[in-house]
Amino acid sequence: MKHKLFVWGGAGILLLLLSIVLSLSMGSAHIPVSQVWRILLHQLPIIGQHIPVDWPVSSEKIILQVRFPRIILGIIVGACLSLAGAGFQGVLRNPLADPFTLGVATGASVGASFLILFGLQFLWLGQWTVPIVAFLSGMLSLLFVFKLAGIQGKFRVETVILSGVVVQAFLGSIVSFMITLSDDVINRIIFWLMGSLALRGWDFSIILVPYFLIGLMVLLGHGRVLNLFALGERQAAHLGVNVDRSKWIVLIFSTLISAAAVSVAGVIGFVGLIVPHLVRLLVGSDYRLILPLSVVFGAIYVLWADTIARMLLSPQEIPLGVITALIGAPFFAYLLSKNKKASNT
């Protein structure tokens, strides 16, 4: 287990670092990779002093003030969404569960759109208002989904996704309704909804980081419990797991990090569904591996999706959610058919 985590985790982190540097060099103003390396190293203490400045100031500004914050935000958003997906899939024992199929993301976007519509984004708690309201409305929709799927307080795993899709459609129409209600802010809600990392400075990363770290610690601590859940809830209870408590902790913290990601970057689909699935194909069913590796690979996935989003029709931006779905859906179909073939032979 540790060996596998070391190998895959190491490979993932290397790939992530490489992707950051490559993505930093890409954009309307081309900056060579070697220069990106030197600009980055120059920022480090001690080593930085030994690197002579041989690049134009504009390059440094573009890298550090425009591209870098955006890339970091993409990384954290990707990590949040795929970690949340892995958490939902583990606790519901359903590979189709993710923040979107469960209606959590749309629920969170109802709360956030409401604030944007009435211009209340900074009321009460300043910059923390949107994530908290998004979390509450996301949590409410999750509870509603369970209520719909549930029988006598215990929900049936099979019907959860079905209820999720219904609730998501309903909440989606509420968001659309809010968009039609107001003409002057229409573009802001729509563009935010489609998912974008453009023009989001360091502030957004700073809002997201505490949510991500708390969620990360709690969920990584539940890896073994999710493994026991895979054997069935009764088995887990007999092995000493407090089933109901663990289930709700994982659900609440997965909702928290998805809502935080949605509130800063809008609805970015397919990340929470595909990344844990891909990781599972690589390393097997052990959640002690799936959870941390989903964080790394989710970060890489969104980083590249966002790079494509800003490069493809440059200088025009494509909404990030469009790219993740455009790559994600066919990739998911490929995984499914490959899985089917593997289990048939």
Binding site: G221, G223, L228, A230, L231, G240, G284, S285, D286
Partner: peptide, 24 residues
Amino acid sequence: LPPVGFSVREVVEMGRYPYQNWMG
């Protein structure tokens, strides 16, 4: 046991859960 993707050894080791600390 349901047919899940864990190895025989991993499943036997799961029996140690009540004796493990939060680090496993």
